[in-house]
Design a binder for these strands. Structure first.
Length: 722
DNA sequence: GACCTGCTGCGGCGTG
């Protein structure tokens, strides 16, 4: 064994020998040296099952044993985004910690009260917790934070990429800052991740004040060989002799995936249900045992656990047809192939999904991409003619092969999460002055883009008597108002993200899962759910329960959803594909034919020379050549001028009424800085959990920092009209 | 034009 091994504490060495490891992995040896030789923060980047957890914990636990800190509280803190991940990781650490005689404390909503009570009484060892449960500790035990974490040497943040600039990520970074302030010293931060688009930004997220001193330990090369196929399917030309695109894809999946473990990412829960239903039927028709199962967040925990266990079981070939539920690091073992039906929304997600396949030595990762495009008729829209779904799939595969993926967006204000954290700081301290709250959250914490003016404006909004979240005591101290007390008291406060209300689906006394409330259902209606067919029997509005029983036929339910967000670079690459002449070797004859059609229509529409094409007296297409944020900013501006606008990848379909002025003239006015108030009219700016407490101007400010880019409007309009 | 994630304290009851 190496010199790194020699540094470890005896019990840890003993555990490694017991495991029968012949040597430490490279990232583990490097991480051990870095943790022993420096006090630096650290990012460990390696694929799933690359030994990241041990890379962090072998040296950390060794240090706890060899150099007792003397303080009180948990020695090490681990924060993970999923309860299932915490349970997995707690079991992994149990072995090492048993040898080291350190307690391992998993802590999330499903962990029993007795374990928590015991840990609070004598906090030590490794605490594994979700951001929400950590939040709850700050609110319920605000004054005990220093006692609970006084001895903490390091915090390990798992799946770092999932918390980079999400609402939850901002919340977590705020809590970590508040933790350091409570114990009056920094705690070493260690991020674990597989997919990071931009390491410098990731470092800045991990430690904003000292990004350059964050050490990076990346698993070198060793990426599995990638086998890739993109198949095209035409929908809308089915007759008695040819199957629908859905049936053809299901048949292809059935033929190639049966007999091994696979993941099929279908993109939407409704499509998951459709494909799982077709594949189940194929198994039944051939009298073969069932091995295709649906997996998405609306399905019951029981069913999801069953599918996950089957995937792990080497004796039972299993294919899960799923949404992004099976994207994160919960342990389901290695899969043979990853299939993607329809274009994904980000290269990062595609990469993360592909990371599930080809993990065993000498085995290639396999990606099967299915593109479904409409059969063209004389009435077909330009979206179908340009085959935008297929083109996006090609662009994303292209960028994946180059190793690129979307970086986080560091400029967002996150005002909804700021409201949450203001309430949390006040609750933790039982009251705080405005300047203390500002220092904690905006100077030390993650809300650095928030100026004192905006902060004061937020305080005024949530302190307004009609809102009543906070109020000011005579001493100037900020306290929770009546509405604030009520909000913070309820357990639903801890999560910073919004979730819709849902109905529970029950069959024969068993929970099948949930359906969003906007589904219109009535007794007698047929339903496909959880991979089977049902008929609705009763609907209980007050209890939010739908009772169903098995049926012979069914229709997939609608689940709702929101708009996607495609990066500039992806759109840019899509135009390069349309304007290029390369025929990638991984494409089949149908998809290549579609690509040729798309290119021919692109030439015909003349976008190579012109960005605006008139296709009728009242209708034009604009090729914006930029991503969702900039394209939707232009869409908002044009709508405020009276145009009706439809948005697609890098394109706008613009229609004007009789009264509307000339499109080019309007673009000219916008480029000269003459845009109207683009938020004046319609458009719902309330999209996050605490947005309802803010007023219009603050909501506009928040939107402009993340969803809309006003600064691009001038140049974009100028480029488009010339 | 989509997906995912999370949750405390306490009263009441049964059991050893």
């Amino acid at each position: 064994m190496s010199s790194a091994f020699d540094k470890l504490a005896r019990p840890v060495q003993k555990w490694i020998r017991q495991k029968g490891w012949r040597e430490l992995r490279d990232i583990q040896a490097r991480s051990i040296r870095t943790i022993y030789e420096t006090n630096a923060d650290l990012i460990v980047a390696a694929s799933t099952a690359g030994g990241k957890t041990e890379a962090a914990f072998l040296p950390l636990i060794s240090q706890v044993l060899d150099e007792p800190s003397g303080g009180t509280g948990f020695d090490l803190l681990y924060v993970g985004p999923l309860k299932a991940l915490i349970t997995d990781q707690a079991m992994r650490l149990e072995g090492i910690c048993q040898e080291a005689e350190l307690p391992v404390v998993p802590w999330h909503g499903d962990v029993s009260q007795s374990i928590k009570t015991r840990a609070l009484k004598s906090p030590k060892g490794v605490l594994l917790i979700t951001p929400e449960s950590l939040e709850a500790l700050f609110i319920r035990r605000g004054l005990e934070i220093a006692r609970l974490f006084g001895a903490t040497r390091a915090v390990v943040i798992d799946e770092l990429h999932t918390v980079l600039d999400s609402e939850r990520g901002v919340q977590l970074r705020s809590l970590l800052t508040r933790l350091e302030l409570a114990i009056k010293r920094p705690i070493r931060r260690i991020g674990l991740s597989a997919t990071l688009g931009d390491m410098d930004l990731a470092k800045a997220y991990l430690r904003p004040d000292a990004a350059s001193s964050v050490q990076l330990i990346e698993a070198d090369g060793g990426e599995a060989e990638l086998r890739l196929q993109l198949r095209g399917y035409l929908s809308g030309d089915e007759d008695e002799n040819s199957p629908s695109a859905t049936d053809a894809i299901a048949a292809h999946l059935f033929k190639h995936l049966r007999g091994s473990d696979n993941l099929v990412f279908a993109g939407a829960r409704q499509r998951v249900e459709i494909y799982a239903d077709r594949l189940r039927e194929l198994c039944e028709r051939e009298h073969l045992p069932q091995e295709f199962y649906p997996h998405h967040a609306s399905l019951s925990r029981e069913h999801r656990d069953f599918v996950e266990r089957r995937l792990k079981d080497p004796g039972k070939p299993t294919t899960a047809v799923c949404t992004s539920t099976l994207e994160l690091g919960i342990d389901i073992g290695d899969v043979t192939c990853v299939a993607q039906i329809g274009a994904p929304f980000s290269v990062a997600a595609l990469r993360q999904r592909l990371g599930r396949s080809g993990r065993r030595e000498g085995q290639a990762a396999i990606l099967r991409q299915y593109a479904v495009e409409a059969k063209l008729t004389p009435e077909s829209s330009f979206v179908d003619r340009l085959r935008l779904g297929l083109i996006r799939s090609i662009a994303m595969i292209d960028l994946l092969l180059e190793g690129w993926c979307e970086p986080p967006k560091p400029q967002a204000l996150h005002l909804s999460t700021l409201v949450h954290q203001i309430l949390s700081v006040i609750a933790q301290r039982g009251g705080a002055s405005a300047s203390v709250v500002y220092n904690v959250l905006c100077r030390e914490g993650p809300f650095r883009k928030v100026t004192t003016e905006v902060f004061a404006d937020v305080l005024r909004a949530i302190g307004h008597p009609e809102t009543g979240l906070i109020e000011q005591a005579g001493s100037g101290l900020l306290l929770l108002g009546p509405a604030g007390e009520k909000l913070v008291e309820h357990y639903s406060f801890y999560a910073v993200f919004q979730t819709p209300e849902e109905f529970r689906l029950v069959a024969e006394g068993r929970d099948l899962g949930t359906l969003p409330i906007d589904n219109v259902l009535a007794p007698g209606m047929l339903l496909i759910f959880s991979g089977r067919r049902w008929v609705v029997q009763e609907i209980h509005d007050r209890e939010k329960i739908i009772v169903v029983k098995p049926a012979k036929a069914g229709v997939p339910p609608v689940f709702g959803g929101d708009a996607g967000d495609i990066h500039d670079k992806v759109i840019n690459r899509m135009f390069a594909v349309l304007e290029g002449d390369i025929s990638p070797a991984y494409m089949d004859t149908v998809s290549l034919m579609m690509l040729e059609e798309a290119r021919a229509h692109y030439e015909q529409l003349g976008f190579r020379a012109n960005n605006i094409r008139s296709i009728g007296e009242h209708t034009s297409i604009i090729a914006t050549r930029v991503g969702t944020v900039k394209t939707s900013t232009l869409a908002l501006a044009l709508r405020s001028e009276g145009f009706s606008v439809e948005q697609h990848d890098g394109f706008l379909l613009v229609e004007n009424g009789d009264e509307t002025p000339d499109l080019r003239a309007v673009l000219g006015r916008i480029s000269a800085g003459g845009a109207r108030d683009i938020f004046g009219g319609a458009g719902n700016l309330v999209s996050e959990k605490f947005h309802p407490y803010l007023h219009h101007e603050l909501l506009v400010l928040d939107a402009c920092s993340s969803k809309v880019d006003l600064s691009c409007l001038g140049r974009l309009s100028e480029r488009l009209r010339s």
